[in-house]
Structures are given as C-alpha cells and as structure tokens.
Computed example of a mutant assay.
Amino acid sequence: MIVNLEGKTALVTGSSQGIGAAIAAGLARSGARVGVNGRDADRLDRGIEKLRAAVPDGQFVPVVADVGTAEGADAAVAELPEVDILINNLGIFGATPALEITDDEWRRYFEINVLAGVRLTRAHLPRMMERGWGRVQFVASDSAVVIPTEMIHYGMTKTATLAVSRGFAKEAAGSGVTVNSVIAGPTHTGGVEEFVRQLVDPSVPWDEAQRIFMREHRPQSLLQRLIEPEEIANLVVYLSSSHASATTGGAVRVDGGYVDSILP
C-alpha cells in the first residue's frame, strides 16, 4: 500500500521526541509538510535535526508553542493556519496515589491531555470541512480503558479523549473529514526504557529485559514486548491517508493486544 500525502500539511503536537517524532517522520516520508511542535525552541531544533537526518527529503516546520495553554494553541494556529492533518499527540503522565492527586493536578492533566486537542480541533476542523477533506486524530492510550491505579488522573484524560474524538467525528459527519483516536499500548520510549531498567536486572540484554518486564509487569500484552514508536506511527500515517476514508469515529487499537476486549 502506497500512502501519498504530497500537498498536505500536518501538525503533530508534542513531536520533538518519542511517539510524536516517529509520527512526524512517518508523515514526512509519505510526502506531507509537517509542523513539528514543542515548547522549548532549542529542544525543538534538536528534534528537527534528528528528523531531517532520518528523512533527508522531509519538509519540517518548527512550531514553537505550548499548546497546553489557550495562548499557545492560538500561537500554533497563527504559525501554521492551514492544516489538513491534525495529530493531537501531546500528553503528560506520572504516577501519583489516587487520594493524593490535588485539584490543581486534575486540572493540569485535563488542560494538557484533553483541552489542547479540543482547542486545536475547534480551530482547524471548520476549515477542513469547508475544503471537504481532513484528518484529525487523538493519540490515546490503553489507560483509557484499563485505568491504571497509580495514575487515574492520566487514565481519566485518555478516556475523555475517546469521547471527544467520537463527538467531533459526529460534528464532521458527511463532510469528507475523518476523526479518530488511536489507542497506543505500552511503548518503547526513553522514559519507559529507564523504568524497565529499574525493574529488571540492568545486565540483561535489552530485548530480553523488555520481555521480562512485559511478562512480569504487563502480562495482559499479547505482543509480549514493548511497541516501537514507529509501529504507532504506521497506524497514524494510514489513518491520515485516503485509504482510511471510511474509518471515522473510531478508537483504533495499536496496543499489542493489551486491552482484553474485542472492542475498546
């Protein structure tokens, strides 16, 4: 299957590293002009350097903005006003005992993990609908369905993301614009690798270490290894293409079978 996104402009929030960077690279390889977003200009420049090394012919546009705030979202729209593909990837997570999560933390997680995507979708969806083509995706998590006891505030925001995505898909009904969420499972990022090394003997080779981690700490996974960011990106790129024109309003899983359910 050949995915051709030439002539399309994409914005991937939180894309200077990790899953977001993998998505930006995947979209660029398919020909899209990609807005790469981050709060810190220096870190963003370093991220774009790596992306250009990985995709020499890629078109990358820096979008320096804290889209977790209303002002930052406005700045991102001003920097890249015409977007055909919006990937709401930005998210934060962290472990806190349920009864110790403060009101401020509940608000902060909701603001960044939910409202950031809502604001950008509210800005770009009408223009996509006017043009009769567009793709909006929210990067969710298995935690939307399997709420983690150590970070229920994070799980709550990802559950909200599924509802938001479905609602915007209904708003775009019949317009040629699709809106979906992507349920990502346990993924190999720098932070997760550090976490695994804390739980598994660091002398064990990485491939075996991650399998031990999955077997002992994430036994629900049918993949029995961490998902690579590029594997998440592959699904996002497909959903961004014309091949996925009949997929909308969905919560599409790339979770390695982590969620023990036929449906999300």
Rank of each mutant, 00 (worst) to 15 (best):
L162M: 15
D42R: 14
A98T: 14
V64Q: 11
E194F: 04
V179K: 06
F138S: 01
V182L: 15
A41P: 09
D103K: 08
V36H: 10
M156V: 09
G7M: 02
I232S: 09
G26V: 04
K50G: 12
H217I: 08
R122K: 14
K8I: 05
I101D: 02
P186A: 13
L263N: 15
A21Q: 12
T189G: 07
E230C: 02
T159P: 00
L44T: 13
Y258W: 11
Q59C: 09
R218K: 09
G132H: 06
L27V: 04
P229Y: 14
V179S: 07
T13Y: 02
Q59K: 14
H124N: 00
A163C: 10
M129A: 05
H217Q: 10
T121L: 12
V77Y: 00
L263D: 03
G256N: 01
G256T: 04
T187L: 14
Y258D: 05
A24Q: 04
H153E: 05
I147D: 05
A22D: 07
V64N: 10
L99S: 04
M156G: 02
V164K: 12
E194Y: 09
G72M: 11
L11V: 11
A41F: 13
T157S: 05
G94H: 04
A169W: 13
E231Q: 14
V252N: 06
V61Y: 07
R107H: 13
S241V: 13
D103I: 01
E130P: 02
V145H: 05
V139E: 01
G20R: 08
A98V: 13
H188V: 03
G190M: 03
A209Q: 11
V83Y: 01
A53D: 04
A24L: 12
R253Y: 03
P264T: 03
V177G: 12
E71A: 11
G7S: 11
R127F: 00
G72D: 08
F195H: 13
E228L: 14
G185N: 05
N88K: 06
E100N: 06
T69C: 01
S141I: 01
W206Q: 05
A184L: 02
T13V: 03
G155S: 06
A209H: 10
V63E: 13
L27P: 10
A172I: 01
A98D: 15
H153D: 07
E105I: 15
V12M: 14
P56L: 08
L51N: 05
E49Q: 07
A28N: 08
Y154D: 02
P81R: 06
A25V: 12
T178Q: 10
E193N: 13
V200R: 11
I147F: 13
V118R: 01
G20D: 12
G117H: 07
V200K: 10
R135N: 00
N37V: 15
P97N: 06
W106P: 02
S16L: 08
E49A: 09
R52S: 14
R119Q: 04
